[in-house]
Computed example of a mutant assay.
Amino acid sequence: MTRKLGGGSLVIATHNAGKLKEISALLAPYGVKCLSAGSLGLPEPPETGTSFVQNAMIKARAAAEASGLAALADDSGLSVDALGGRPGVYTADWAERQWFEGEPGRDWYMAMGKVEGMLQHLGPDVDRSAAFHCVLAIAWPDGEHAVYEGACTGSLTWPPRGTLGFGYDPVFVPTGGAQTFAEIDPERKHAISHRADAFTKLVADQFGA
């Protein structure tokens, strides 16, 4: 049996105000008060894992141990079948500019271009199947934990289309759709996304009957 959160405070292992707001809204109906690791002054641990599960657990455990409260962390990214699952846990790293590519920061158009360039190198008939993955990990200070994995399958297109999304959204078309994640209404995207899939599993397990 999975340990249950119940009500009370939950540390969200993020320094991103937007992510805190999104997760807080999802958990508010269950009486959970969300605090960010950033607001508590908790450091961000190095993400040294080689899988989404490992990185999510690293962040959740670090926040739980430092705060003395239950903590929730997520790790997500894009895997491309023809590229052996890459960029995977390095999804954000592929967007990081090198010293010769301009000011420090992330350039997502550059990242999308890297993926497309590798696919084109494999030939015109390359398999363009891809999936977004999300892992949600809950850790308690005493070491207990729970993990929930979500995914959204689809295919990659080129050139990028749409302005409503972020990251690799402009080149990702979900299975059964014709528009990219960056072309569809954000509410609809959130309803079918990899994060929504993981949260559905978390809520069913943690707050279900």
Rank of each mutant, 00 (worst) to 15 (best):
M1D: 13
K4L: 15
K4C: 14
S9V: 12
L10Y: 01
I12F: 03
N16Q: 02
N16A: 04
K19E: 01
I23N: 08
L27S: 04
P29H: 05
Y30V: 06
Y30P: 00
Y30F: 15
V32A: 12
L35C: 09
A37T: 06
A37F: 06
G38P: 09
L40W: 12
P45I: 10
P46L: 10
E47M: 10
T48Y: 03
G49K: 01
S51C: 03
S51Y: 06
V53N: 06
Q54E: 09
N55D: 02
M57R: 10
I58E: 05
A62V: 00
A62L: 00
A64V: 04
A64I: 06
S67I: 02
S67Y: 02
A71C: 08
D74Q: 11
D75F: 07
S76T: 09
S76C: 09
G77T: 11
S79H: 13
D81P: 08
G88P: 04
Y90L: 15
T91E: 14
W94K: 13
R97E: 11
Q98Y: 07
W99Y: 04
P104W: 07
P104Q: 04
R106M: 15
W108M: 08
Y109K: 02
M110K: 06
A111S: 05
M112F: 00
M112K: 00
V115M: 07
M118G: 01
Q120K: 13
D127F: 00
V135L: 00
L136H: 04
A139I: 13
A139E: 12
A151Y: 10
L156K: 14
L156Y: 14
T157A: 13
P159I: 12
P160R: 07
R161S: 03
G162Y: 05
L164V: 03
L164W: 03
G165M: 07
G167Q: 05
G167L: 08
Y168W: 12
P170W: 07
V171L: 12
V173P: 09
P174S: 07
P174G: 10
G176P: 11
G177P: 09
G177C: 15
A182M: 12
E183P: 15
I184L: 13
D185T: 09
R188A: 14
H190V: 10
A196Y: 00
F199W: 05
F199R: 07
F199D: 05
T200P: 00
T200I: 04
K201E: 05
K201W: 03
K201Q: 04
L202G: 01
A204P: 02
A204Y: 02
D205R: 01
Q206I: 02
F207I: 10
F207K: 05
F207L: 11
